[in-house]
């Protein structure tokens, strides 16, 4: 094929894909706002998305906090600045690493699961069955997952913040020889409510991205088992990229002032 035609076809495909995603998001918002509300399904999804992600998010944030403490200490030691370890660990975890690494871990776990589940429902005609049973698939499948993810992710980020700081505390006091009382006091003194809330806002947006990308890719999957596999991969990749780019945008907006 002509290289120009290839570029043109790629660009048109990208535009079509973006337009379809925009329509999907708009349709999802309508489904979220309009009744009926499936509260039981929202609760079930909160357990699947939030509660069952706790171990992976907790482990990730604990080790991240510990590594952060070590790196700041080794880097800062050259300038006799190991005292800033506690404050930078707290800042780094609450503002960036807690929500972002938590978001990426949940994207890998949850976005893939959502895409696989909805994709399987698509190729086995279960979504068609929902429609014939007078149940709107966006209300029954998409809205509960999006609502649950938007509520669960900030809660997970809060847990990640606490455990990440504890990871830094454990490494700082057990391995680097810091005084526990002084370490905690410096953490509390340095951290502000804005540091925490900015991370929670980010986490809510990441939750939306994770659920929407899982639902979108699953809903539009086609071509049997191979199609479902492709939808699962696309969901994780697109959610991860969008989380990182949204993080940059939100950091620019939230901290520019």
């Amino acid at each position: 094929m002509n290289p120009l035609a290839r570029i043109g076809r790629f660009f048109l495909g990208f535009l079509a894909h973006t337009g379809r995603l925009a329509v999907f998001i708009a349709h999802s918002f309508v489904a979220i706002i309009q009744p009926p509300y499936y509260l039981r399904l929202i609760g079930q999804q909160m357990i699947r998305i939030g509660y069952f992600s706790l171990p992976v998010v907790a482990l990730t944030s604990f080790f991240t906090g510990g590594v952060l403490a070590l790196q700041i200490y080794y880097g800062g030691n050259q300038f006799n600045s190991e005292a800033i370890v506690s404050s930078i660990v707290a800042l780094g975890i609450t503002r960036e690493l807690g929500p972002v690494l938590g978001g990426l871990m949940v994207a890998g776990r949850v976005s893939a699961a959502i895409a696989a589940e909805i994709g399987t429902m698509r190729v086995t005609e279960q979504i068609d069955a929902l429609t014939t049973l007078s149940t709107e698939p966006f209300k029954y499948l998409v809205a509960p997952r999006v609502i649950a993810a938007v509520i669960s992710m900030p809660l997970l980020a809060l847990v990640a913040d606490i455990i990440g700081i504890m990871g830094g505390f454990v490494v700082g006091t057990q391995s680097l020889g810091f005084n526990p009382a002084i370490y905690m006091q410096l953490t509390i003194d340095f951290i502000t409510p804005d540091d925490i809330t900015s991370g929670l806002i980010k986490a809510a947006v990441f939750g939306f991205i994770i659920a929407i990308m899982g639902c979108y890719n699953g809903y539009h999957s086609a071509g049997g088992a191979q199609g479902v596999g492709r939808a699962t991969t696309n969901a994780v990749v697109s959610a991860s990229i969008l989380i990182l780019s949204a993080n940059y945008l939100m950091t620019s907006l939230l901290f520019s002032s």
Partner: peptide
Amino acid sequence: FGMLFQNGALFD
């Protein structure tokens, strides 16, 4: 309408 799908399409 009632509908019986080819492979059942039961909700897993």
